[in-house]
Design a binder for these strands. Structure first.
Lengths: 350, 350
DNA sequence: TTCTTTTAATTAAACGTTTAACTTATGCTG
DNA sequence: CAGCATAAGTTAAACGTTTAATTAAAAGAA
């Protein structure tokens, strides 16, 4: 590998001059500049960023801690992060924790989870990253960002449970409201909802949005229409029968997977989605474009979440925190991004 | 940020001693060792990896150039890469080129694509990565890895078109063979195949596998059963009608998306998949688990591809290249990974 | 005892940059 | 023409480590 020293010698100038040219500093003559540039080209010299970083004490690098990159929401969030970083000329050091892979679904019981994260954070800091974005795969109560962290950090698509670090999340109340309201606009009044896991804040917020939409449209909320699911396709399949028993004309599923289960049940019992009964999903995963009929659902603003989280982080790194972006819930700084209703063919006018 | 110097001063030893302790070097007394370790803990000292890297001239970092991380195969390939890197204690610097996002589907027409890649590679080298893995999103003929590259590189899930860099790809002939052979084992003889785009090497290889399976089972190859698709769901939908006209009892779709289109057509015409006609897909995307009935398909060995590519790369970096891993096609070093048949409910005995 | 080896440590150079401080030559002003 | 700016460089220190070379003291061998 050829260094600035060798370029300097070749040009009969000092290394400072070469450095100045590389960094567009003033006080260098046009003639020498051209010569040096030519020699750089000829020798195929590439500056050593690690030396530069050591000297300048900044790396323009952020660390992205991803719990599991194969989880459906991760790639789009990362895409948002890299999008913003590209604009701001930051680098991203990606850590794929592979938590699902290592421990399976129940890993969050593990005690050492917290230690793994702490260790990874140590290593990122040792690599002089200037900030950290954490992207969870599961919702959970563990505070994965330690409060004594020396650099800025933000959470994308989850709560930090900390007054120190902001989080950027989906506005689930608004999302569920949008979906339910759309169903109502199509003339439906008897609308079942298949929920996610009981204790989940996603479930709570989406239920709230469902209720608010009913309320705003002067439709009585009937608790019997709320059917428990657990996010899985199977739970959707099982819930479908219960919903139909209640004589509803539409079902709002709190995710697309459960909607898939509902489709299956309806198909097996000879009912036609969109005609006999309307179905709406939530998330807008790939699947929704392969269901027949196409699933009407709410697109999660994943790209925006990643981008906004990154924006927040870089603002913090660069010290210009825009307070007006902030709102707080129980002391925690929370930014909410809104999903977008994808109107397709599974919800039809009554 | 606290440095080794401050730790040394606090302990009344030289920085060399602290360094030796940190790196488990010999010639340091047990007593001082304990003291230094305690002080490190107390002061919460974290070594500066960039300084270390500058001095030792290695970074244990590889660059991963991803054309588009939101493409369905990317996350699993990356998961394989990070899996291997974790084992070998390497880091990965992820570059998401976002090529789809920037230029849309036809970006590969662009002339500047090659320059973008070259520029990114320059920057990776400047960051002292020790090797590069390239993960394409589209197949194409551009040679994205320049032959004058100063560090090792490998391609994961695509061909390098270079005698210098190895590529790790899916063994499509074997894959299509496995699927077709399975269909035949279920008693089918009249088997249509819906192809991908015409010029694609995936299409060619999968067709070869299909033909070989027929041949091995002493079934005549009927060119009329080959129906042109273009990978899209719509093309599958359109191809379905043509396949049914030929009175086939099974259809092998060269990807899951087209299988989705076939499902749609069959559903609309009142035919039941798995009963009236058998369908098999290829890829095993998420969708295949949401189709009714569940799609029988070939799982792409994406994780293995990423992992193997990474293994190859790190072997090269560390200088112990295992020649026995290698086989060549037109001079290009190609490693093939085998997919796995996922037997589900869309192919049934005749 | 004296000489040699071993152990535990220190010193200082080096890695490839940036940058503040300095030097020298040139041009401009009054 | 002296005095002063300015332009175009150079010098050398510094960033936080590692490591080869060196030293000093203690232990062992003759």
């Amino acid at each position: 590998m050829i260094t600035i020293k060798e370029v300097a010698k070749e040009c009969n100038v000092s290394i400072a001059t070469v450095s100045n040219i590389l960094n567009n500093k003033p006080n260098v003559g046009e003639e020498t500049k051209q010569k040096v540039l030519r020699v750089i080209e000829e020798m195929n010299y590439t500056p050593n960023t690690v030396a530069k970083n050591l000297k300048t004490k900044n790396t323009r690098t952020i660390g992205a801690l991803i719990e599991d990159i194969t989880v459906f929401c991760a790639p789009e969030i990362i895409d948002g992060i890299t999008n913003y970083c590209e604009q701001k000329k930051y680098n991203v050091l990606l850590i794929n924790l592979r938590l699902y892979k290592k421990y399976g679904d129940d890993y969050f019981e593990r005690e050492d989870f917290f230690n793994i994260v702490r260790q990874e954070i140590r290593e990122l800091i040792s690599k002089q990253v200037e900030g950290i974005i954490y992207v969870p795969a599961h919702e959970r109560n563990l505070k994965c960002l330690p409060d004594d962290l020396a650099i800025p950090a933000v959470m994308a698509y989850g709560y930090t449970r900390s007054k120190k670090f902001p989080s950027v999340v989906v506005n689930d109340i608004q999302g569920a409201y949008t979906v339910t309201n759309y169903i109502i606009q199509q003339g439906h009044k008897r609308i079942a909802v298949i929920t996610g896991k009981d204790h989940s804040f996603h479930t709570k917020d989406r239920l709230l949005g469902y209720q608010k939409a009913l309320y705003d449209n002067k439709i009585f909320y009937n608790p019997e229409f709320v059917i428990a699911g657990d996010w899985s396709k199977e739970s959707g399949y099982n819930a479908a029968a219960k919903a139909i028993e209640k004589n509803v004309t539409a079902i709002f599923c709190m995710n697309d997977q459960m909607a898939g289960g509902v489709y299956k049940w309806l198909m097996e019992t000879g009912k036609i989605v969109g005609k006999d009964i309307s179905i709406a999903g939530y998330d807008d995963r790939d699947v929704s474009l392969y269901m027949n009929p196409l699933l009407t659902t709410l697109r999660l603003p994943l790209h925006q979440i990643g981008k906004k989280a990154c924006e927040l982080l870089i603002n913090q790194i660069e010290g210009d925190v825009k307070k007006d972006l902030y709102n707080r819930k129980n002391g925690e700084i929370i930014i909410e991004e809104e999903g977008e209703l994808k109107i397709r063919d599974s919800v039809m006018p009554l």
